[in-house]
Design a protein around this nucleic acid. Structure first.
Length: 293
DNA sequence: AACACTCCCAACCGCGCATGT
DNA sequence: TACATGCGCGGTTGGGAGTGT
């Protein structure tokens, strides 16, 4: 079964749009809205494929499109989001109001890709060195997977919220989804704990598998962690670590999500956090279950 | 001036997903 | 459930503009 063509190719014009065609399209959409793109060319009187009309409108004629060179701020956002989202240009475009996915894609391909290729970005992980450094990850570790799950969920939530102004209104929080809880969770003390945990994932959780006491709490340079770090780690992990240079329980990176889970249960004991914590527990449970599966 | 080359970006193409019938 | 349809997305292409020789 072949897919039906979106239009009769021999009946439509291709190539660059003329100012006259642009004007017809803009006038029509401003009066009638796009309706269905497939029928728009006929209704508007344009000898173009509906798909082509849509593309022209979305990428060029829309009144809210920001043209001109990308600012360094926009560039940074693109770099950051691309390191997380990869080539999901439409998702990245959510963070750059007025910029189109096509424009961002072109900018990346013409400006950034070569630069990052020459700077030795780990293309397999699609993650910039800046981000790796910023969030303290090493690719391939279990905590990386956790971190990426969380970051992915957070990005999804932010994107959705930015698309839906109603959700920015606290009074409208009755409408919640999993990703909303992830966003709140991420921005909460618990999320902060998790981020901190991963910052120290390097120094603390270097070893995996069979962990001897001598392998724990040793960073890349071979030095031990600070008392402050241990103190914090105790707080973050629900008192599973004892303070002291020789009696610290090894921090298992695989446990990061589990520790957050425990922290949430603790968090739940506070009445003002109870509901949020419970909902977050549900979400984390799903992630933990997925991991087990 | 003429040519070759590179860069940039608008536009096209094919595919996947969601929805309707 | 199978198929048709519409839309959105990401990869790719083609041509104009700019630059170097």
């Amino acid at each position: 079964m072949g897919r039906t063509p979106c239009c009769m190719k021999n009946e439509v014009k291709k190539g660059a749009w003329t100012p006259e065609e642009d004007k017809i399209l803009v006038d029509y959409i401003q009066v009638n809205g796009p309706g269905t793109w497939r029928s728009l060319p006929k209704l508007a009187g344009i000898q173009r494929c509906g798909k082509s009309c849509r593309l022209r409108w979305i990428n060029y004629l829309r009144p809210d499109i920001k043209k001109g060179p990308f600012t360094s701020e926009e560039e940074n956002i693109i770099i950051q989001k691309h390191s997380i989202l990869g080539n999901r240009w439409a998702s990245i475009a959510v963070y750059l109001p007025g910029r189109t996915d096509n424009g961002i894609k072109n900018f990346w391909n013409s400006h950034l890709r070569k630069r990052f290729a020459s700077e030795g970005v780990n293309q397999q992980e699609n993650m910039s060195p800046e981000l790796v450094k910023a969030i303290g990850l090493r690719s391939g570790t279990p905590s990386t997977c956790h971190m990426m799950q969380w970051e992915s969920a957070r990005v999804e939530a932010e994107a959705r919220l930015s698309m839906d102004p109603l959700l920015l209104n606290p009074s409208s929080l009755a409408v919640k989804t999993e990703s909303d809880y992830f966003l709140r969770l991420w921005n909460s003390n618990v999320g902060a704990s998790f981020r901190k945990t991963n910052e120290w994932d390097g120094p603390i959780c270097r070893s995996t598998g069979s962990q001897s006491s001598s392998s724990a709490m040793v960073d890349d340079s071979g030095s031990g962690v600070t008392v402050q770090q241990a103190e914090w780690s105790k707080n973050a992990h629900g008192a599973s670590c004892k303070i002291g240079s020789d009696s610290l329980k090894p921090c298992e990176s695989e446990d990061s999500m589990d520790n957050i889970f425990l922290k949430l249960i603790e968090f739940q004991s506070s009445p003002e956090n109870a509901e949020f914590a419970q909902q977050s527990i549900d979400v984390v449970s799903i992630y933990l279950k997925d991991e087990c599966d």
